[in-house]
Amino acid sequence: MIDGYFSLYQTRSVNERKFSNFGKTEIGMQKTGFIPAIPDFTLTPRIDQVGAEERASRFTKRSIKKESKVNGLKLVLNMIDLTTLEGKDTEGKVKQLCYKAMHLHDALPGLPTVAAVCVYPTMVRTAKKALLDSGIKVASVATAFPSGQASKEVKIKDTKYAVDNGADEVDMVISRGKFHAGEYNYVYDEIAEIKEACGEARLKVILETSDLITFDKIRRASDIAMYAGADFIKTATGKVQPPSSMPVALIMLEAIRDFYYKTGRMVGMKPAGGISKAKAALHYLVMVKEVLGEAWLNNHWFRFGASSLANDVLMQIMKEKTGVYQCASYFSVD
């Protein structure tokens, strides 16, 4: 499926000729104790689109029933970044979301909580306070989400603001305009600088795959993000149509796999946008297991960015438990 796999990685000297401004980047990298050999991103593997689509469709044909289904669904719940990213968000809305994150469905004891709550930077403090010592993380979008059309200084400030307010994780967007213009250095440096601004917080890099258009570019952006220090790569903001698809996620998972083989460093994955059904979420788990392996099957390395997915998963779990199909009215609003 992927050509040119072995010709991808270049020596450092070759790269230094092509990429001259890595000064700041390396300081950022050293903080995490990770200095990768930076490849020439113009040479990232090309993707066979038909092959990727066909392969992704096969993951949807596994039969997962009964107990393994329930276990899978509980795992999905535990991987959700419960998200509210609306212009109309209020503190009340965020508090309500945090309560839901901690009490998914009290009628059914023994459920896990979600992994994190994902909000705008201005809501981080509210969320942090509401979640107390529940163990649920607070993720904040930053860097002029969702467009990313702001100066680097503003983006760094935005990130620092979120982290200073207590964000455990930062979801940044890449500069798609710069990426399309071929300014990979800019995109790379920006990610590295945001990573530095994050400090201890884990950085998720949103590629906004619908904006990148081709599968080749999605793979290239994935590579840039991971080499620049991303802890997670994330498909989409959820604000652009069409939402991310399984083939897109497959390409990103393969990029993570190749990166791991090359550098020995694990990078997490977060598909977001358009995953609202439990069945689709299970398909993603199958894909992660079969592409990356079980090491990634936990919420440290895999997340779902979603708002309505949680309720559908809860309804499926209740269906398995009670034997009758469920009604959304009996579950808390999200």
């Binding site: 009758v324 199909y325 469920q326 009604c327 959304a328 009215s329 009996y330």
Partner: peptide
């Protein structure tokens, strides 16, 4: 039985 047990 499904016609009558569905919660929705």
């Amino acid at each position: 039985s499904w016609f009558v047990s569905h919660m929705d």
